[in-house]
Design a protein around this nucleic acid. Structure first.
Length: 683
DNA sequence: TTAACTGGAAAA
DNA sequence: TTTCCAGTTAAC
């Protein structure tokens, strides 16, 4: 027994020593904290800590040591001790007294005296966290780019003098868009108009936006412009350089790399430039004295942030316009139901192209594949490319480049049995089969196995056909039809930005269309039935948007032809260039069906247990409908479920508040996380 | 990470 | 009832 005790004593001794050490360290720390000399003026800093827990999304008070009195200003990044850990945070305020009962820990470190979180952006983060039932720290992760110390050392250039505003050139650029000139004059005079702008086909929208920005600068205020992708940013970049001259704007995109991105951000943050242009993140650019916010093509799903709390750029700009009293311009060749709602409620004015301009700029027709044609075979080249389409391409090739839009990329997007038309599936894993060219064997999209000797399981046939033709095969076919013509392809990871004005055919998938130097002589839209075949809430709206963007690239006197059913209202809207009218009818339908934007919708997603717990905590607002839970991605192993909550639009704020409260309760009780999306882009 | 708190068991 | 300890919770 005594021996046992001795054996036990040794580890006990070690443990005691370690404990003694810990106690000593704690005492040292306490003495250090007590001995810190605090700032004389406003010795308390309000800090927003970067912690993912919803119930900790508030400011915490820290003591400001005298050494940091001058640097710990609102907006700077700091390191603080929080629950025993070093965490990042931002100082959002300084004050003389704290409401906190206990004693305050001193700030650990001011990371940099660069004030990167501006008050307006901190407030915007609060608005967005509330609206999207998320946390401010999540929003700030989207809003403030990563620090790059070396970039910070470089002092910024002197602020440029505002560029002069040429009213005549601006009015010319906006010619035919009513009331465009009045909008620009209002901006130049210091006003904050809110407009939803529908562009005419072939409109030089980058130049038009550049003039709106110039008008805003002339009033002594700054501007923010958000575009879907880097290609569009590059176009606006060039237009701004042409209208304003160099050095007046910063370009903020993710693809430029962290150093350059932070450099551009600092130019805006320090007030060196007053115009910020970029993709989603540019919506948060801390431009001072904001006069105008612009979003182009708000229907493009690239404007929907894929990271929590999933804010949409249009909503970010909307909230920012309200809070900072700035003007807002929502523009596009297409029109979303959300933008239409802004006009319908009188929140924004419509700026529309005149009938004369639309007629003069483009002629859009539909080449009908009749029902009989489609019955005969929707897949043959003769129906896919009717005679009328061939004639248009041939005629237009005499004048310049021709754009052919095709919805699918690759060679043959999916394969089917030649005899019985059953979709061809992989014998190993049941994945769909595709082929990359006329001589490559069919390959499974899921497992990658090649099946040169495929046999149809239902009829025993060996032949394969391509019910859906990709852009490469389209290019190949056009090359045969128009020998000696230059045929280019732009899709997927091989996207062309621009083509010259020489005759040639450009086959592109939606969103990958290159810009033609002087506009296209003709635009041909193929397989419109395919773009409409996808099931979804926004299928027609999205198809119309994609076609409109292609037709938007036409040059003066160009012609567009869509191959499809001329009786379809969505194609008729394209022909009449009446996207706003289509969106208005769509909005009415959505209202009847209790779908956004007339209703506010949110989803709660997670494991069945987590969603179940969330629902018991959820205090649904009045008139809320809770639908589900339903399994998500059935067939896959991850077994997530989703609940949809729907309220009338007037209860939108109450829904956001209830979901925010749910997240705070859930995180305080350490329950499994659920993903909450308010106004998801697609359900 | 850790000080403060909670509740339950042992000691008185 | 008091004291002690282990596990839990909030977090400045």
């Amino acid at each position: 027994m005594a021996g046992d005790e001795e054996l036990l004593d040794l580890p006990d001794l070690v443990r005691d020593r370690a404990a003694e050490g810990r106690v000593k360290a704690a005492a040292t720390r306490a003495r250090k904290a007590a001995s810190v000399v605090l700032a004389e003026d406003e010795p308390i800093a309000e800090v927003l800590v970067d912690v993912a827990l919803a119930h900790l999304d508030r400011t915490f008070d820290y003591a400001v040591p005298a050494s940091m009195a001058a640097t710990a200003k609102p907006g700077v990044r700091v390191k603080v001790r929080f629950a025993g850990q070093d965490v990042d945070g931002y100082v959002v305020g300084r004050k003389d007294a704290s409401e906190h009962g206990g004693k305050l820990t001193p700030l650990r470190r001011v990371v940099s005296d660069e004030r990167v979180l501006h008050p307006a952006i901190a407030a915007l983060a609060g608005d967005l966290a509330e609206r999207y039932a998320g946390t401010r720290s999540d929003v700030l992760r989207l809003a403030v780019p990563a620090r790059h110390a070396t970039v910070e050392q470089v002092s910024s250039a002197k602020p440029q003098r505002p560029a002069g505003w040429e009213a005549t050139a601006a009015t010319r650029a906006w010619h035919g868009h009513e009331p465009g000139a009045a909008l620009l004059q209002h901006l130049a005079a210091g006003g904050s108009p809110r407009a939803v702008w529908h562009a005419a086909p072939g409109a030089d929208w980058p130049t038009m936006i550049a003039h709106a920005v110039a008008a805003t600068l002339a009033s002594g205020r700054g501007a923010v412009v958000c575009l879907p992708d880097g290609k569009d940013v590059a176009r606006l970049d060039a237009a701004l350089a042409a209208v304003l001259g160099d050095g007046h704007h910063a370009t903020l995109t993710a693809e430029e790399g962290p150093a350059r991105r932070y450099h551009q951000f600092l130019a805006v943050s320090r007030g060196t430039v007053r115009v910020a242009v970029g993709t989603r993140s540019a919506a948060f650019a801390p431009v001072r004295d904001l006069g105008l916010l612009v979003i182009w093509d708000d229907g493009d799903d690239l404007h929907a942030e894929p990271r929590a709390p999933y804010p949409h750029t249009r909503e970010v700009l909307l909230l920012r316009a309200e809070r900072e009293g700035a003007g807002l311009l929502v523009g596009g060749f297409a029109r979303t139901v959300e933008a239409t709602y802004l006009v319908a409620t009188g929140w924004a004015h419509a700026v529309l192209p005149s009938r004369e301009l639309t007629r003069a700029r483009a002629l859009v027709r539909v080449a009908g594949a009749s029902d009989a044609d489609l019955d005969r075979d929707p897949l043959t080249r003769s129906t896919r490319m009717p005679h009328e389409a061939h004639a248009l391409v041939r005629q237009a090739l005499g004048r310049g480049p021709v754009l052919v839009q095709t919805p699918r990329r690759g060679y043959a997007a999916a394969l089917a049995c030649e005899t019985c038309r059953a979709p061809a599936r992989c014998p190993d894993c049941s994945g769909p089969l595709r082929t990359a060219g006329p001589v490559t064997p069919p390959t499974c999209v899921w497992c990658g196995h090649e099946h040169p000797a495929w046999t149809c399981p239902s009829c025993g046939g060996h032949g394969l056909r391509a019910p859906v033709v990709g852009d490469h095969r389209t290019a190949e076919e056009l090359g045969r039809s128009f020998p000696g013509t230059r045929v280019l392809s732009s899709s997927g990871d091989r996207v062309l930005t621009e083509v010259d004005g020489r005759p040639g055919i450009v086959v592109a998938t939606p969103g990958a269309e290159p810009v033609a130097a002087t506009g296209y002589a003709a635009v041909l839209l193929l397989d419109t039935w395919l773009a409409l075949s996808r099931a979804g809430l926004r299928t027609e709206e999205e198809a119309l948007r994609r076609w409109s963007n292609a037709v938007g690239l036409l040059g003066d006197g160009g012609q567009a032809l869509a191959v499809g059913d001329p009786a379809l209202p969505v194609l008729q809207a394209l022909v009449r260039w009446d996207q706003p009218g289509f969106a208005e009818r769509e909005t009415a339908l959505r209202r009847e069906a209790h779908l956004p934007p007339a209703s506010r919708l949110a989803t709660i997603t997670g494991t069945p247990g987590a969603v179940d717990d969330a629902l018991t905590l959820f205090d649904a607002p009045e008139d809320a409908e809770v639908l589900g839970p339903v399994p998500l991605d059935e067939g896959r192993g991850d077994a997530e479920v989703r609940v949809v909550v729907r309220v009338p639009r007037a209860r939108g704020a109450a829904l956001s508040a209830a979901l925010g409260e749910l997240q705070r309760l859930r995180s305080a009780r350490k329950l499994d996380p659920v993903r909450i999306q308010v106004d998801p882009i697609e359900i």
